[in-house]
């Protein structure tokens, strides 16, 4: 069930550390974390609360400055000894990274279609193309029938699928998900995981998902666990 590793990892993290505060108040959220993830892999990130899972996702998503370490995303060097080597991280996020949140975080004043179309337009698609691609995606995620609904009118599972459609819109090769199934029942959680697997295969993407949900552990190719900022592969499947 493990996809054959390519020679080049999609996500390559080398001895990244991150600490918050200094002196007495210093918290080491990540300690020399190294990880490499290949196209097609669906990876779980486990660990007790406060172990640094969100911090690691934020660093890989280029929204948090690490204290030290190096990083390559999709073959491009983005971090070298704790310093960003690429200036436009926003464009990088837009092109390469999709985020799925625990709370769906849809824009409340846009309907389902436009929530997805927005990221397509931000990436340069014209309005018509964006909308039709958005509708395709919603169909693909089986929420096409709710395409004109406002987020407040969607059920938790529907909203989460719209959010996934949005994360997938620009065909990112790296998808970061922070507890994507926490708000869903186990049946819905299974559907979402199947979807992510499908995306990983179809788009040759890497998917990193933080989860506490033991029911879905068997759906991951690899499982990493964090404890006090240190990462181990395999690790305890209890958090």
């Amino acid at each position: 069930m493990v996809a054959a590793p390519e020679p080049r990892p999609l996500v390559w993290v080398d001895r990244v550390s991150k600490h918050f505060g200094e002196g007495e108040a210093r918290v080491d959220a990540l300690r020399e974390v190294s990880i490499d993830i290949y196209p097609g892999q669906v990876v779980a990130l486990l660990g007790p609360s406060g172990s640094g899972k969100t911090t690691l996702l934020n660093v890989i998503g280029c929204i948090l400055d690490p204290s030290s370490g190096s990083m390559e995303l999709d073959g491009e060097k983005v971090l070298e000894s704790g310093h960003w080597t690429r200036s436009n991280l926003r464009q990088l996020r837009l092109d390469k990274i999709g985020f799925i949140f625990q709370a769906h975080n849809l824009i409340p004043f846009l309907d389902a279609t436009d929530n997805v179309a927005l990221v397509l337009q931000l990436a340069g698609a014209d309005a018509t193309t964006a909308r039709s691609r958005a509708m395709e995606l919603l169909d693909y995620l089986e929420v096409g029938h709710r395409r004109s609904a406002m987020p407040a009118k969607l059920s938790g599972g529907e909203a989460q699928r719209v959010a996934i459609a949005r994360a997938l819109a620009n065909r990112p090769r790296i998808i970061l998900a922070d507890e994507p199934t926490a708000a869903l029942d186990s049946k819905r959680a299974g559907i979402v995981m199947d979807l992510l697997r499908k995306v990983a295969v179809d788009q040759e993407a890497a998917i990193i998902a933080v989860t506490h949900d033991e029911k879905i552990f068997d759906r991951f190719d690899r499982i990493f666990s964090l404890r006090d900022g240190r990462l181990d592969e395999g690790g305890a499947v209890t958090s």
Binding site: G61, R90, L94, D95, F101, I107, L118, L122, A123, R166
Partner: peptide
């Protein structure tokens, strides 16, 4: 603010 954070995260430029 939360929506603005989301917009930034998904890559919306400051001018948007």
């Amino acid at each position: 603010l939360k929506q603005i954070a989301t917009l930034k995260l998904i890559g919306a430029p400051d001018r948007t």
